[in-house]
Structure formats: C-alpha cells, structure tokens
Design a protein around this nucleic acid. Sequence first.
DNA 1: TTAGTAATGGTAACTACTCCTAATAAGGAA
DNA 2: TTCCTTATTAGGAGTAGTTACCATTACTAA
Lengths: 147, 147
Amino acid sequence: MVTTPNKEKLRIKMKNKRTRLTRQRKIILETLQQTGSHPTADWIYQKVREQLPHISLGTVYRNLNILKKEGKILELKYGKDVSRFDALTKDHYHFTCEKCHRIYDLDVALNKDLEQMVAQKTGFKITSHQAEFYGICSDCQKSDSSN
Amino acid sequence: MVTTPNKEKLRIKMKNKRTRLTRQRKIILETLQQTGSHPTADWIYQKVREQLPHISLGTVYRNLNILKKEGKILELKYGKDVSRFDALTKDHYHFTCEKCHRIYDLDVALNKDLEQMVAQKTGFKITSHQAEFYGICSDCQKSDSSN
DNA sequence: TTAGTAATGGTAACTACTCCTAATAAGGAA
DNA sequence: TTCCTTATTAGGAGTAGTTACCATTACTAA
C-alpha cells in the first residue's frame, strides 16, 4: 500500500533494471579496486577464484561488462593484445612501457581543450577522449643503463 | 652480372632480413592505401580476393603484420572489437563515432607538448602517443535530428 | 642451373570472449 | 520470517579473430 517514490527514482536511474549486488560481483569489483594495476579478465578470474573457487569465467566477463556499463570500471583496449580493466572511475591517461608492458595511470589533467578543438574543426560532437603514451618507464631505463 | 650496390643499402635498412615484395603483399598494401578508411583484416581479405582469388587469410594477416613492423601501416586496436588497419604513415589522431562506428582520421596537429609534460612529470621516456576521440559524427547528428 | 630461403595456400589450433540452460539466491513484499 | 519473482550463477559448448604449422612454390644470388 505504501508507495516508495524515492526507490522508484533509483530504479529509473538504473535504467529500469534493478541490478543485484551479488557476492560474485562484489568480490570482482573489490579485487579490481585492490590491485592498483590493470589486470586482464583472466587474471581477475584467477584471483577471484581464491575466494570463490567455483566462480565461472563467464561470470567474471559478464560482471566486468556490467560494472563497465555502470561506469564503475574502465576497459582499456588499446594496448597490444588483451583487454585490461581499471577500477579508477575518473578519467586519466595511460602510459604503456614498451619494455615491461606495464600500464601506468598518469596523473595528468585531461586536456579538454583538445576536445573542443576537434569539435570545432570537424563539426563532430565529442563526448570523450583518451590518450595513451608509449615509451620506457623509469624502472626499465635503470636496468637498461646497468647492463 | 651487373651488381647493384644500392640494393645492399636497402637490405641493411630492412634489418638483415630481405623481405620480398610479393604480388600478394603489394596488392594488400595498395588495397589498404586506396580505401581511405580503416578496414578490418577480413574486409581486406575479401577485397584482395577480387584480384587474387586464391590468397589465403593467413597470408593477409602475415602481411599486415609485416607491413606494420616495417612502419608502412598502422594497427588500430582501441575501438570496440576487431583490429583495424590504417595505411597512413604519418601520425594522426582518430575519432570513432559511437553511433555508426566509423573511424575518422583527424587532421589535427599532434600535441607534442603533452609528451614533454608527461615525461617531466613521470621521468619516463616517451617515444610516442596516440589519442582517440569519441562522440557522434556529423552524418549521424543529421539523421538524429531528422527523426 | 642450382642452392638457399622467404613466402605462400590450406588448414588445424589457439585464445579471448560470448551464449545457453537449469539451478540458485538477492532482495522486495506480506 | 517466509514467500515470490526474476536477476544471476556455474559450467560447458560455441564463436570469431588470429596465429602456427608445413609441404610446396617462387625469388634471388652466385
């Protein structure tokens, strides 16, 4: 009898589909947040299995996609090969070391001017951009010079 | 009988491994250069088959990788799904339309300052960077408003 | 012409990922 | 708490894109 209008709002925000916070989804997100790195789906799968030995790989993929849609994680596709995931939600650039293949988050302000410039030049509507830098990270520079 | 010393030079440039410009490789590169777009490997395969009906898909992939290593083409991986290839050699940014999924080359000067800023902030050695912009292209904006 | 080997076609194998289905469990209502 | 609806799961089969393998072909240089 008692209607709950504020819950209704929430539901609308989530696009008519209540998502349930399952144990699996929770642990997948936590795992990703706890590693500061950018693991592959398979790495996450292996890691989560330590807590949920019976979780299936499909569940990991499904949840990564759901979390991505919800904006809680980021999928990085540009590297060389596999998709990697990133728990940080705020936009940031990435750096890939061409030697050790680690991916670093860059603490550099997004250059929103670039978007505007592109919009002006092309007439396209720009909603976002990303950038990746390539080169040699400090660690690998060190080990280079010591050889 | 006539020796051609300039060929020797070429060989050194190609890193001790003579690559042969086969009919297949030539046509693959030309096909890619002639389409101004960013086709998938499979699209290239279909197109090249019009001229070389017996070419195998493996040959297309092998040659795309070789051409990539030689710096003659670019592989774009960031989009949603499949790899796409780009015959342009000079660096440029890309725009992906989130509606029609076309990829456009942007005629915007590379922002080399960004690289320097990142290098200063991180101590990494930056050799290159790329950027992708996302949004809605002019065509799709038009068809949007007419509906 | 001949030796050496890069490249090819055809196909099998691999890998990252998605889809399918019956069973399970989250979470709202009573 | 108990019930009910249905989102989500495990597990496995299936798929698409790509690479590896190998016997054969075709350049290249001597």
